[in-house]
């Protein structure tokens, strides 16, 4: 049985966007799109999340934060980079402190294009991510006991 696909919880982080993409992400939660239909909840807490939605480009200030949030999401997890900024740095690309897209600091599974990305494509991106999530879960299950032993440690 796989419940993962039926209950993807997301955390949304705004790296350094113009806030255009963020508004579109939040739009997906409104009654018009109502992503909760698919069991999607915006948790705001990496420890509860399965899908990491990042908008905007990564800069010197927030690269640690992006990494930190990524690390605090329990496996299996996927990263969805939303908007052109998150893909490549977009219009902020040339800024002195901007590193570029999200993939500069953490592995990204799905890129959603658009400036700003439309809610439909964001939802589409998340649905694509669900497929990847499922493969990751199976991979994790196979590794199973192996990883268990390695990661275990005392208080």
């Amino acid at each position: 049985m796989t419940y993962l696909k039926k209950s993807p919880w997301v955390i949304h982080y705004d790296a350094s966007s113009c806030n255009g993409c963020d508004i579109e992400v939040l739009a997906a939660l409104t009654p018009v799109y109502d992503v909760e239909r698919f069991g999607i909840i915006n948790t705001g807490n990496p420890k509860h999340a399965d899908i990491f939605l990042v908008t905007g480009s990564v800069n010197e200030q927030n690269k640690e934060v992006v990494k930190n949030i990524y690390e605090q999401i329990p496996e299996p997890k996927v990263v969805v980079a939303i908007g052109i900024c998150a893909a490549s740095g977009g219009i902020f690309r040339e800024c002195y402190n901007v590193l570029g897209g999200v993939d500069k600091v953490i592995p990204v599974d799905v890129f959603v294009t658009g400036c700003a990305a439309r809610p439909e494509s964001i939802i589409d991106g998340v649905v694509t991510a669900l497929g990847i999530l499922e493969t990751k879960r199976l991979a994790m299950k196979e590794k199973g006991n192996e990883t268990m032993d390695k990661s275990g440690s005392a208080v």
Partner: peptide, 28 residues
């Protein structure tokens, strides 16, 4: 709220999902 809402069985999916996830703690 004028939304469709999740399936009625959603809480079971959620909890089932949670048990599929990695075991992560700050302290045991």
């Amino acid at each position: 709220q004028g939304r469709v809402g999740p399936p009625v069985l959603q809480p079971f999916y959620d909890v089932g999902k949670l048990f599929e996830k990695e075991n992560m703690v700050v302290t045991v």
